[in-house]
């Protein structure tokens, strides 16, 4: 009998909801995969995407990395990273005001930081799309297993 991978949980009775999986994946990278039972993948996504995002913020400082006025398109990517990016955005508006200009990174640290954080967000977007595809295939498998409905009976 083939061995079952440790990270995968047994198949659920009901198909998971795609919107819930997508929202969970946006909230915390990998949480959507964890919820549909693919825990190993979920942990890998969480660790890699979080480390990439926060490495970017650490390199450039939060004021350089998450700055909507200067990094327009990159901010859109960073926001795919979820509430942690929103938290960083809140941080620069409410917490880091006493540091002002001296914490802004110069080139190339500024570019490296923005690219790291933006790529982390875009990777999370890929993860969200992946969890939606997996939910769809899981639902198809579960629906094909369901017994045929008999007419006239609920």
């Amino acid at each position: 009998m083939p061995k079952k991978p440790k990270s995968e949980s047994p198949m659920p009775e009901l198909p998971p909801s795609a919107p819930v999986a997508a929202v969970l994946a946006w909230t915390l990278p990998g949480l959507g995969h964890w919820w549909i039972g693919q825990r190993g993948r979920g942990v890998i996504f969480f660790v890699v995407i979080s480390v990439t995002f926060w490495a970017g913020v650490a390199v450039g400082g939060v004021r350089t990395t998450v700055r909507p006025r200067e990094n327009g398109a990159w901010i859109a990517g960073e926001l795919c990273r979820g509430p942690q990016a929103l938290g960083a955005l809140y941080g620069i508006n409410h917490r880091v005001t006493n540091f002002k200009d001296e914490v802004k990174a110069s080139w190339p640290a500024s570019n490296i930081a923005v690219v790291y954080a933006g790529v982390a967000g875009l990777l999370n977007l890929l993860v969200i799309i992946d969890v939606l595809a997996r939910v769809e295939s899981l639902s198809a498998v579960l629906n094909s297993r369901a017994p045929p409905k008999v007419r006239g009976k609920p």
């Binding site: 650490a58 939060v62 540091f99 640290a109 490296i112």
Partner: peptide, 26 residues
């Protein structure tokens, strides 16, 4: 996370490796 890190000139290209690794892992 508030103050930026100064990256030595030699490390600028080296910063590409962790980014590539994370992209390939995901």
């Amino acid at each position: 996370f508030v103050k930026h890190v100064t990256i030595p000139e030699l490390w600028r290209l080296g910063m590409l490796v962790p980014l590539t690794l994370s992209i390939s892992i995901v």
